[in-house]
Write a protein that binds this DNA or RNA. Structure first.
Lengths: 211, 211, 211, 211
DNA sequence: ACGTAAGCGAGACGGTACGTCGCGTCTTACC
DNA sequence: GGTAAGACGCGACGTACCGTCTCGCTTACGT
């Protein structure tokens, strides 16, 4: 039997060691501060070998992100096949899944979304969330009574960056709340707005719409 | 005493040249890609002189950010002196001011919030917004009928990161909308939520609250 | 014994390919510039296979030199069996043989004696010539009227390096002269000196001996 | 007073340290075996600084050779201004000067002419000697009774390489003989030939000319 | 002739040196 | 006294070549 695995065992081992070392070091010192030689030392991989696999630190980072996001995509992506179930519970499920996934990579998310993280990470997860949210919105379109009240692109950006903010806050707190609680909070904020969350009186809110 | 007199003209000139050069170069190549020697070349300042004023690139960046945020703080910070005017119009005014300020530094915001920007910038503006929003929320507290429905820290983070997302989206579009339109959109999203913006039926929203 | 049986066909083939490749590449780029991987590419031999046969580039070079010098030794070495024939014609014959041999490996000699050649080659051929010349001198000793007028070691070195100089000059010229002409010139220089070759007057030479 | 010296003191110091280190290390390990980092370590110069002065090892070597050969050229070059003194004593003086110079750089010559030396050195000194000898031969031309009996280029090469052989032999012996003795031997070999030095009978030599 | 031990191709890997780049410090000379 | 010019130590970078090491395949040799 010839091994039909795509890559030599040694190759996979080397890449995994490098990935793990990078993640650990970013968590310790931040992305920019990590030197390729540090990664190699930690991974116990020769520096020349690093360059046989990745052109530079950024490529290894992408490799790491692929690792994380692949997991996320596989759990979130499958959209509801039966278009009739337009309730938001599927969306809620997705949000729960998202927070669960985050909690499983909490350390990575904490540092990557932090000040010392890599901008590429934030923009990539933002795109992923945007794509997912847009898809769901497209599928739910016929259930709407009204046309969109604001430019969808704007709304999408608002919601996705806000979600990332929630995630960042949560992992900074050490994931104190359960993923379900976070998902519920996210859904509430999405549906009722920040004013509601702050406890503003509905009448006050309604009154100020016209301002 | 000459100590507290405004700095030597040459010093101020040098620092301004360096600031301008850094901003221009970040806009062209991104923060990390900018070399101190590039900044000096652009500013036509000797590299040794740079080090007489700033310890490193980060310190110059802080200097630049101070320049921008000082402007913002001065326009936004003054809280409503008369606590009785608890209408949201003051908040709305603040938001207009914010977007106006952003439009005046659009290039800077675009690159600094982008993938190639500096993480420090994003986190700093986030803190500023959080502080302002928190202040306003504290002042408006007695006007609320209800206690906060979600943890205020969470809500704050949600709203401020969402605002930054809006800003980023806006400057990426070239500030096509007016600051007033953006402020109105921001306020609407804040008060009515994303579901409303997407045009979801209120009944549907209400129904799913219980999910 | 299988040990001294001629080597496996594959082994001989591999070594020959490597030898030829090295010689060709030295001729093209000089000894130091040749990389082992270049040799392997040219020879269409895997690099790992190279190391199964030679420890490094130097060992392959020695292998190549053995190839060349073995030919030379076999043609020059057999000293005059009958000690009575002490005429110089046998020495002359040897010199003719030497230049003939050189002409048959002209390309190799040209590059190996040139600036980009291997020092080991020059010193090895120098030793060979020195051994041959010393042998002949020992055999011709009883025909001398006089004891050596200069330290034999010095004279030997003078003559052998001069011969190598002649060879180098000749191959650099593309072996324009016949081997016989070169041998005659070498013998003339050996017997009559450089002054004579330049056409200096004998009286002048004699006069200046005392200087 | 502005210093009219061509180079900053630090620059000259750095280059001298590197030169000395290279010479010492070549003497110890041979040219090819010397690593640039070795040179820098020995010279207590940072490796990056090396590259600010020399593109590679070869350029530093040339710098070293210039140092040595400049000395030689200045002592040997000035040709006899008064063309009437065509005796060979001036040539003899030159040869004495050459050997004296060599004895002052004996270690350098020993290793550079040895197997581990640099081919460039040998070929460069060969060219220098050739140029000097050719000059003298041109100036002495009208004193000759006869036209050259062999191609001057060939004779030049013979003599210069032989001289280098003598030099190499001498420094290998630790310069046991005096420079004067070596110069006399060189002149004798030049004027009377190798056969004479070996003590061959003149009649024998004469008889074999016709061979 | 044919099974087997060898020679061999492929290529990952650890290592060492290379030449380059940018940083931050320092000295020197100028104005 | 501030500045220009630039040498210097430092350390990371990305590249190149070396020599070693599996792991299978195939090929010449010995019985």
């Amino acid at each position: 039997m010839s091994q039909n695995s795509p890559l030599d065992l040694r190759v996979r081992r080397t890449r995994k060691l490098l990935r793990d070392a990078l993640v650990a070091l970013i968590a310790e010192h931040g992305y920019e501060a990590v030197r390729i030689s540090d990664v190699c030392d930690r991974a116990m991989i020769n520096r020349a070998t690093f360059y046989r696999h990745f052109a530079d630190k950024g490529h290894l980072l992408v490799h790491c992100m692929d690792d994380v996001f692949e997991d996320l995509q596989q759990r979130i992506n499958p959209p509801p096949r039966r278009a009739e179930e337009i309730d938001l519970s599927a969306g809620y499920q997705n949000i729960v899944t998202l927070f669960t996934h985050v909690s499983e990579h909490a350390a990575f998310y904490r540092v990557m979304l932090g000040e010392a993280g890599a901008g590429a990470f934030r923009s990539r997860i933002q795109q992923i969330l945007e794509r997912v949210l847009e898809q769901r919105w497209e599928q739910a379109r016929h259930a709407h009574r009204h046309p969109p009240r604001l430019a969808p692109a704007l709304t999408l950006r608002y919601q996705t960056t806000a979600m990332i903010g929630l995630i960042q806050w949560w992992v900074e707190q050490g994931c104190a709340e359960t993923p379900l609680a976070m998902a519920q909070a996210a859904l509430d904020l999405m549906l009722h707005g920040v004013g509601w969350a702050f406890g503003l009186d509905e009448a006050l809110i309604a009154a100020n719409i016209t301002v």
